[in-house]
C-alpha cells in the first residue's frame, strides 16, 4: 500500500516545532508591521502574517539540502526553511551582518546553505528557479526536491506556466505551491484569475493538482507530504493550491481600500492558523496550553532581541559597494 504522510505520524516534538515555526513567523511579521511604520526600515516589506500554516506545513517535509524559491512575501518561507531569524532581521534593517550583508533587504533574503534560493522581487520569478535546481538534482541523481511558492497573481505569469510545462516535460522533482490569498496586489482574484481553482491548470500539463485549506496546518502537511514524496521518488511535479488570506496589505503602507470592512478581523477570528492549531492539538490532548504559551514567550524574546540587534548593527561601509556584485564561475 502506498505509504503516505498522514498527520498521524506527527509526534509531540514535531507538533511543537510546527507551532514554534508558525509563531516565529507571526511574531516576526507583526513586529515588522509596527517597526516599519517608524520609518527606520529601508525599502519595502510584504508581510506573510495569516499564511504561516503553508510555510510550516510544506517545510516540515523538506531536508536541509532541499531547495525552495520564494516570493516578495518571503519572510515566512525563509524562517520555516531554517534561515537565521536574527540574520534576517538585520538584513531587513540593511545591516552589514545581515544574512546578505545588508544588500538584499526584505525582498532578496537568500541563504544558499539552507537551500533558500531567495525571496524574489519578480512576481513569478520562483518557478523557473526550481526547474533549474530540479534539473540539477535529477541529473546529479540526488534525492533533492525543489519547491516554489507563487501567489495567485504570480500564477498568471508566463514564467509560472512555462515552468509547469517544463517541469512536466522533464519530469522534475518539483512542487509548485500556489498561495492564493485572494488578491494580486490590490486586485481581487475575481477580476484577475479565470476559473475557481488555480489547481485545475495542472490538468493542462498532465500533472496532479490539489486544493487545500491554507489556514489548516494539517491539511497542508498531508498534501505537501504526498507531493514531496512523489517528487523525491521520481513521480514528477505536482501543484498544490492553498486557499488562504493575508492579514496585512500587499505591502506595508497599503491602505487596502479594496478589502471589505472587518474582512481581516473576521478571518482572524474564524480561520487563524495558530488559533486553529492550538485548539486542535490541545483538545486532542496531544499538547498542553502551557507548553504553547512557553513557546510564545520564547519567540517573543527572540524577536525582541532580533529587532534590538537589527537596530544596533552597523551599516555596511562604502568598501562593500562593489563586493558580491559579480560572481565568477
Amino acid at each position: 500500500m502506498t505509504e503516505v504522510a498522514g498527520a498521524q505520524e506527527l509526534g509531540k516534538e514535531q507538533l511543537l516545532d510546527a507551532y514554534r515555526t508558525m509563531r516565529t513567523i507571526r511574531e516576526f511579521e507583526e513586529r515588522l508591521h509596527v517597526e516599519f511604520a517608524t520609518g527606520e526600515i529601508p525599502g519595502f516589506v510584504h508581510l506573510y502574517a495569516g499564511e504561516e500554516a503553508i510555510a510550516a506545513g510544506v517545510m516540515a517535509h523538506l531536508d536541509a539540502d532541499d531547495y525552495i524559491a520564494s516570493t516578495h512575501r518571503g519572510h515566512g518561507h525563509a524562517i520555516a526553511k531554517g534561515c537565521d531569524v536574527k540574520g534576517m532581521m538585520k538584513e531587513i534593517y540593511g545591516k552589514a551582518d545581515g544574512l546578505c550583508h545588508g544588500k538584499g533587504g526584505s525582498m532578496h533574503i537568500a541563504d544558499l546553505d539552507k537551500g533558500m534560493l531567495g525571496a524574489n522581487g519578480i512576481v513569478g520569478g520562483g518557478p523557473p528557479l526550481v526547474c533549474g535546481v530540479g534539473l540539477s538534482a535529477k541529473v546529479r541523481g540526488t534525492n533533492q526536491v525543489a519547491v516554489s511558492f507563487t501567489g495567485d497573481g504570480g500564477s498568471n505569469q508566463g514564467t509560472t506556466l512555462e515552468s509547469m510545462n517544463l517541469a512536466a516535460v522533464w519530469d522534475l522533482p518539483v512542487v509548485f505551491v500556489i498561495e492564493n490569498n485572494g488578491y494580486a496586489e490590490a486586485t481581487s482574484t475575481n477580476f484577475s484569475t479565470k476559473g475557481l481553482d488555480i489547481a485545475k491548470r495542472a490538468d493542462g500539463f498532465g500533472i496532479p493538482g490539489v486544493v487545500v485549506d491554507g489556514h489548516d496546518f494539517f491539511a497542508v502537511y498531508e498534501a505537501a507530504g504526498e507531493a514531496i514524496r512523489r517528487a523525491r521518488e521520481g513521480g514528477g511535479p505536482s501543484l498544490i493550491e492553498c486557499k488562504v488570506n493575508r492579514y496585512y496589505g500587499h505591502f506595508e503602507g497599503d491602505a487596502q481600500t479594496y478589502r471589505a470592512p472587518n474582512e481581516v478581523e473576521n478571518i482572524r477570528q474564524e480561520k487563524d492558523c495558530l488559533m486553529l492549531f492550538r485548539q486542535r492539538v490541545t483538545s486532542a490532548g496531544l499538547v498542553e496550553d502551557g507548553e504553547l504559551d512557553r513557546i510564545d514567550e520564547e519567540v517573543k524574546q527572540l524577536i525582541d532581541e532580533s529587532v534590538e540587534e537589527g537596530k544596533a548593527s552597523p551599516e555596511p561601509g562604502e568598501e562593500y559597494l562593489l563586493t558580491d556584485v559579480y560572481v565568477s564561475y
Binding site: 503516505v4 490539489v210 487545500v212 489548516d216 494539517f218 498534501a223 486532542a284
Partner: peptide, 13 residues
C-alpha cells in the same frame, strides 16, 4: 485513527 481532518480524504486502511 487520524486525529485531524487534515486533507480530509481517507486512503489508508
Amino acid at each position: 485513527a487520524e486525529r485531524f481532518v487534515g486533507a480530509r480524504a481517507v486512503w489508508r486502511a
